[in-house]
């Protein structure tokens, strides 16, 4: 089995595109439309990888990353996070550091638009890295 991937993005078309790409390689895809829903799905589905957008309504990706630092999420700590966003990586990292005072602890960072090949390559690397 290739693995289960949670994709969190507020844009349904991006969700569809990413899902199509991932499902073609046999990954099982679950989706969420904002950070709060993403965290709930993370708990319920126990995915092997979370693909996370940063700019979202209600609870954004930054807030999700911050929430996951809390000890009550320690059992999900080994689930890798791949950020997929249109925000530039250095800008995001700086913003997160300014807001929280700690470094953005994610496993990979991919800027939109993402080519399918690159996405698949990064997903497989991230999943294998944390697979026990």
């Amino acid at each position: 089995m290739a693995g289960k991937i949670l994709v969190v993005d507020d844009d349904p078309d991006i969700l569809d595109a990413v899902a199509m790409i991932l499902e073609s390689q046999g990954y099982k895809v679950v989706t969420a439309r904002d950070g709060a829903e993403g965290l709930a799905t993370l708990k319920a589905e126990q995915p092997d990888l979370m693909i996370l957008d940063l700019l979202m309504p209600k609870m954004d990706g930054f807030a999700v990353c911050k929430e996951l630092q809390d000890p009550k999420w320690s059992e999900y700590k080994n689930i890798p996070i791949l950020v997929l966003t249109s925000v530039r990586e250095d800008a995001s990292r700086r913003r997160y550091e300014l807001e929280t005072g700690v470094e953005l602890d994610v496993d990979d960072y991919l800027e939109k638009p993402m080519s399918p090949d690159v996405l698949l390559e990064r997903v497989s690397t991230s999943i294998q890295k944390r697979r026990p």
């Binding site: 844009d11 990413v18 790409i21 249109s86 939109k112 993402m114 399918p116």
Partner: peptide
């Protein structure tokens, strides 16, 4: 600019999905 970027990104995603033969 940001509001223009979001739909274009989605379109680009779909185009690449089609070009990659995923559909």
């Amino acid at each position: 600019a940001h509001d223009l970027k979001a739909p274009l990104t989605a379109i680009q995603g779909f185009l690449w999905v089609m070009m990659g033969g995923f559909t």
